[in-house]
Simulated scan of single mutants.
Amino acid sequence: MTTTLRLAKVTAANFDAAIGLRVRPDQEHLVAPVVKSLAEAYVWPDTAWPRIILDGDRPVGFLMAFLDIDFAGDGRGMDIRSGLWRLNIAAGEQGRGYGRFAVESVAAEIRRRGGTRMTTTWHPGEGGPEGFYLGLGFRPTGEMSGDQKVGELELG
């Protein structure tokens, strides 16, 4: 049996499935629930890129990218970045390559739009996703965004 991984826009038809996705209980402090991400996408429709991750027709995760934001937030536009804002892989679906697929999909979208680097953030510490991101080639920039480390991936 071959599985087909794909991203889909969140619609009325898959909204309940999207907001029903839950990470493991020990990870809930590391990532906001999908419903919060969708609310933020509503508030920032020009920069948020929310997608449900499907394996065939089965929802297995959610991602939200940010596209062309003023990362410094100073209004000068000197540090425009795109990257992965949120990644929620359902508790029973982790370790199957869905996270890697999500990161690669966001990287492809950023490249399609002319970008050459991808930014993400993560909570440091035990049980956090730092090893996952470093394993995919992200490198810490030395910056912090709130209490999260900032990492970048060159999209050469």
Rank of each mutant, 00 (worst) to 15 (best):
R113V: 10
L153G: 02
V106S: 01
T119W: 08
P45M: 13
R111V: 11
G135F: 03
Q27C: 03
R81W: 11
W85I: 00
R117M: 15
L67E: 10
L136E: 08
T116M: 06
L87E: 00
D79F: 15
I19L: 06
I80H: 05
G92F: 05
D147A: 13
W44T: 12
R139K: 12
G146C: 09
V10P: 07
G146T: 06
R58F: 05
G131F: 03
N14M: 09
P33A: 09
R117S: 10
R22V: 12
I69V: 15
A102T: 14
E126S: 08
T119K: 11
G61T: 11
T121W: 02
H123E: 07
V10D: 12
Y98F: 15
P45R: 14
T47K: 13
A41G: 15
G151Q: 03
R86H: 13
H29R: 11
E126L: 05
A8R: 14
Q94K: 09
F101Y: 15
F71Q: 14
Q94M: 09
V60P: 10
L155D: 13
Q27S: 05
N14I: 10
L153S: 04
P50T: 10
R96I: 01
A8N: 07
I52L: 15
G142V: 09
V31A: 01
E130D: 09
K149G: 08
P50D: 09
K9F: 02
R51D: 02
V150K: 08
G83L: 00
Q94F: 04
S145Y: 09
G73F: 12
L54Q: 12
D70L: 14
R111S: 07
L87S: 00
G128V: 00
G99A: 07
F62T: 00
N88L: 15
P140I: 03
T2L: 09
D68I: 05
A39R: 14
L21H: 09
R58A: 14
G56F: 02
P124A: 07
Q148P: 03
I19N: 04
G127N: 07
S105H: 08
I80D: 02
R24T: 04
G114Y: 09
L30C: 02
A48C: 15
I110A: 03
I52N: 01
V23E: 02
